[in-house]
Design a protein around this nucleic acid. Sequence first.
RNA 1: GGGCGCAUAGCUCAGUUGGUCAGAGCGCACCCCUGAUAAGGGUGAGGUCCCAGGUUCGAAUCCUGGUGCGCCCA
Length: 950
Amino acid sequence: MSTDAKKYKDTLNLPSTAFAMKANLTQREPQIQARWEEMGLYARIREARTGAPRRVLHDGPPYANGDIHMGHLLNKVLKDIVVRSLTMRGFDSPYIPGWDCHGLPIEHKVVKDLGRKAAGMSFAEIRDLCRAEAMKWVAIQRDQFKRLGVSGHWEDPYLTLDPRYEAGIMDVLAELVERGYVFRQLKPIHWDIHDRTALAEAELEYAEHTSPSIYVNFPITSGVPSRWGDGPWHAMIWTTTPWTLPANVAIAAHPNLEYAGLRYIDPESGSETRTIIAAPLVDRVMGLRKVAEFEILGTCSGKELEGGSYRHVFIDRPGKFVLADYVTVEDGTGLVHTAPGHGAEDYRTGLAYGLPVISPVDASGRFQDSDGVPADLVGLQVFEANPKIIDRLRSDGSLYHHFNFRHSYPHGWRSKKPVIFRATAQWFIGVDRNDLREKTLEAIRTQVRWLPSWGQARIEAMVGQRPDWCISRQRAWGVPIPVLFDERNDYHHLTAESVRFFRDLFAKEGADAWFNRPIADLVPPDLDTEAHPVEFLRKGTDILDVWFESGSSHRSVVREPGYDAGPYPAFLYLEGSDQHRGWFQSSILTAVGTTGRAPFETVLTHGFVVDDKGQKQSKSLGNAVGAVEATETYGADVLRLMVASLDYANDVSLTERAIKEASEAYRKIRNTFRYLLGNLEDYARFDPESVDPGTLHPIDRWALYRLNGVIRDTTAAFESFEFYRAFQRLYQFCSVDLSSFYLDVLKDRLYAEHPTGPDRRAAQFVMARLHSALARLFAPIMPHTSEEVWDLIPDSPAKAPSVHLAPWPEPDPAFDDPHPGGLDWDFIQEAREVVFRDLEKLRAAKVIGSNQEALIEVGSPNPELQAKLSDLRRHMESTFIVSDVVVSPDRPEGATDLPGREVWFLARRSPHPKCERCWNLRPSVGEDREHPTLCCRCSAVVRSLNEAAG
RNA sequence: GGGCGCAUAGCUCAGUUGGUCAGAGCGCACCCCUGAUAAGGGUGAGGUCCCAGGUUCGAAUCCUGGUGCGCCCA
């Protein structure tokens, strides 16, 4: 570079900004967050929106256990984008995060850590440890969520263990009791007979266990097809739990299976038996005893058997034939021994057929003297009873076959002993009482907008089929069902009034009061202590299902004034699609049951986090991406950009690769901002309003026209929660319209024109608008970067102290003209593509390097077009970024036609000398004797600058 | 096994009521610039629109069946 060139370079207005190219988000974001905290940003936003129309997203509480994962990240970022965009668009949109703090996983963890000590501890002591465990994770997760830039009322989130919250749960329970939805009924649950305790699914461990396998003939009393001939007929069932036979009340067949009426001769006794088994199993079952002589006397479908009856094998009790879908021909006989007191499927079948739930087994697994249990079994533990029962069956001739086998069987996680299914009294919400199901379905159909729309069909099907809701759990860590019972009889006291008594108590002391206070303090006013003296009263030991707790948040949080989360019903719930069975359903059931309407106006769901192959992420598969680690490595804004770029209605792959792609996009967007800021550095020194819109070039107006479109489309995308559309629109605008076109075209004006001249100022006017609008449009997605970018624009009275306090950008109707300057921009864009292809050929042939070394000839055989081309000449020159465009009368050899336009172009090297300052090849270079290496534009600028300096 | 979904270039997404609908951006390859420089610009190569039937003059787009994947349930 010559000395002169260096000197001239100093007269250019090259970009300069403090906005670093390298984002360094992992360090910068915490600094920005600290500043928000310092300035009390959340409170200031709340204040600024006081009185504005409210739209409240009610947070679904994550479980307070473990570090956050990608699923949490997806959910919370989507929520934050919603809340931030609503806020900026002028709505009063508070966000009160919550946590689900009770429940088995925490209790399980605590008890496991305690080991053998747990047995000697009181409920109250265990509960204290559970609380500490929950609060520990609340604090950790809160910090992890905040690190993602999620804006909300983090100082006072709602916690399901908070007395305020627990009181709300009691309100819901009281109203459901008052309306007659709550009742008590037997239901089989997993039971550890060693520890004498109920177990949840998660507390089971599967281990090898030896069970008897027996085939038993039950005598049929009616229902055998008459075409099969005379009996006596039997039905052969198979079971691996002989001890459940005393509770047998039905035999289940599959409606579509074929059943055979079979006559066989017992190979040992030689006696003849007629019995029914599934036709496909005849050979296999007969083979068990190597029965040589048997014949099928007839067949029928399972459906035909329904309604038939039989006598219990050793108890004087009738049973009936029922149908069930789960019957298979995998094992057994195709006829399933059904004891609703001792099996989950049996219980369901029992509900469908109104069968009695019999469970003559006490807490230690011993037979009681009830339900016709034979005297020799009473007092025996069920596993000890098995051989006795088998002996009895063998001796009365009803046992067809018996052998022992080993298989996987559930054991208690603490006792390591085999568990049983045992019916115990549980509390339920009757879905069909008082038309709750119908009312809920009606609310689903008429009061809620489901996004995506298939969510409605999904929850409708679930609510339409769901059984009564069992709300009791036999655990310590939760909110008690405050029932008092008289130990002398079956009296249970649970009334609306009593529950409200405990509501008041819990509001003051928390649900711990139930466990800590003596029973004398817990007698509700409506309990008749004459009939049930305090000394005979006992506290119920059940707690509520945690889904009942979180499902009460519409009462505890949305309707309670203390949380700033109203009004009821909420504007929006936003969770993963699994919540159609979970929180959406528990919420709408309790809400309809208590208020008669849905607790939400809109339910928006997102899919699940999967890997690049579309398979779910899990630790065991080894394809899970850590959310905390990813945030520490890439920064929150990159991850947020990734989330925003995906159509979350489907499953989303949040993977290392996806993060890398988001990083690329982030870099492009960041550099676009950097370029805008670099050229606005001196913009502060004058009033933007002093720019006369009349000085804008047509292409400037075109850019603002495009910006209007971006603002409109982006706003619509946020409105409809389609953030990926906002992302695509913004990203492509930055990349295509701005970086590769408008900003590239602007360079000559920005760098070479007089710094305060009208041409440069016009460009800066547009760039300032682009910057201001884009910073705000990106703010819900990339809150940190938007803030950083906003911050670097010099202060002015109109500038909000944070981009998050700024109003949402509006399109400027002054720039709605798609053809500014009366120019055909479609034509210019098409021409640009054709010309660029030609220039590429020159470049490949080493004729030119940059576009500025080229000259474009253009012409048309059409005189009208030829005249138009002359008008467009200067605009083509700038948009093509070439030094010259000349309109020629004759089409030279080698020209390229613009398809369908009657216009041709020819690119060649410009014959003119290069201006040392602006690098254009211009005929005027050399005309100015003082600056012989400059074009006339540049010499004029330099002269003016020198005069100002001198 | 059942209910509800999803399936267009390597990736993220467009493709209104079936007829220039096979697109965009990114990525990739190659090239240029070196005055957005761990940046910027250009050109180009990529798709049996999951598969198989069917309806139709014509289907990525409608119907049926299947495959894969996800959520929920069993």
